[in-house]
Design a protein around this nucleic acid. Sequence first.
DNA 1: TGAAATGTTGGGGCG
DNA 2: ACGCCCCAACATTTC
Length: 488
Amino acid sequence: MRSTPGTTIHWFRRDLRLADNTALRHAATAGERLVPVFVLDDAILARRDTGAARVRFLLENLHALAAGLAARGSRLIVVRDDPAVVLPRVARAVGATAVHWNMDYEPYARARDVRVAEALAAAGIRALAWKDQVLFEENEILTGTRRPFTVFTPYARAWRAQKAAGPKEAPPLPPPPDLAGVASTGLPAPSDLGFASAANLPEAGEAAALARLRTFVDRDLHDYERRRNLPGERGTSGLSPYLRFGVVSVRTVHAATAGRSLGARTFTTELIWRDFYQQLLFHHPNVERQAFKPALRTLAWENDRGLFAAWQRGETGFPIVDAAMRQLRATGWMHNRCRMVVASFLTKDLLIDWRWGERHFMRELVDGDLAANNGGWQWAASTGTDAQPWFRIFNPTSQGEKFDPDGAYVRRWVPELAAVPNRWIHQPWALGAPEAAKAGLVLGKTYPERIVLHEERRPRALAMYGATRESTSIPQQNTKSPHRPVRP
DNA sequence: TGAAATGTTGGGGCG
DNA sequence: ACGCCCCAACATTTC
């Protein structure tokens, strides 16, 4: 016979919401009193790929979360410390018998959670980790031989089959009942943590996330297949920042968007990509540091710092690239079509290591997520699992003409080209002198000259990638990953 | 979730 | 009428 567990802790991490929160619900119903905690972890704040926009968005969502908790008579405890030190301390202070949290699949988080669980166990406190932030976890979608997938298409097929065969979607969990009040601590400002961001970020909080979801479903989902590729229009869901921090649950998003229409199916595919890259990172944590494909770990990147800086600033002379890089800096977000274009440009036109671009994205993106960002970069650089073939190289001009035909996107983010006619908006260098004068364009003055010529760089990229073929043609006898789970 | 090079076809101008 | 050339337009191959 077990005594009533009195107090439980819910440790918020990337699940900054009250609604449909698996661990929070379990923590709230397991005991009589629930203490919500968030830990500002210096190990994360000090990382080179932690950026101001994401820190600010995190803090704004913590404010919204704390307000939501306050409305229920509870106070969010925010502490800045090592979670393995502070969680046992808080647990002892409030007399908690258990700490609940939602699973996180990143290498750092997994190691940290092991440390935290050990520290809690040493203090006689239970630790419970729940599945919450993905629709299917790392070992729920497996091949016929019970191994993880490394190719997307068969993974997606199995994912859909499992979803169709599985139990009817459980209704989203209600928020926990009223919570007892406990001690509070103040929330820091970004500047207190050494970050300053003037980016124009999305509105924080669960209500804003649900409003965005509703607008997307009502207005944009039906035409998602076509419009998601047009950066000049608002055709995408805009949910990535909210999903990144769990401000809305992925189950709620999926339930609201699932359907038989082409738009709905295409959007579900994006959610499947999200699960795919998370399970890939779980089973292959080495992708955080190196190419998934061993043959492409020895690419002879040129890594010219001047070219890299021009790319970062959005001053490459290629309008679609510059518009995208400036949108990123101004808003902490970039349209996905443009993420592919600028990644192709960095790796295959500038011949710069994809990891440089990956880190820049992580520093700037409000939705920056290791699994998705790394997966996207390795896909574009052709180094990843199921990546595009290395000889597939985007032409930044034709990509612009194809997906921003009227130049609306370029004009919004590169105002110095605003008066250039549509015909030349994606290749202003080809504009005749009289028309350039009429558009107020002086190449090299009002807008940069191209920093490289695509037609020169493309063959160099092909040579660079092609060179890896001869040097790595040794047949691989044993390609077993050390991280592959042991088969029964 | 490419682009460029190369190959093929067919219409039209022309001697 | 016919062969020849040019060149879009489209298809295939190659990177």
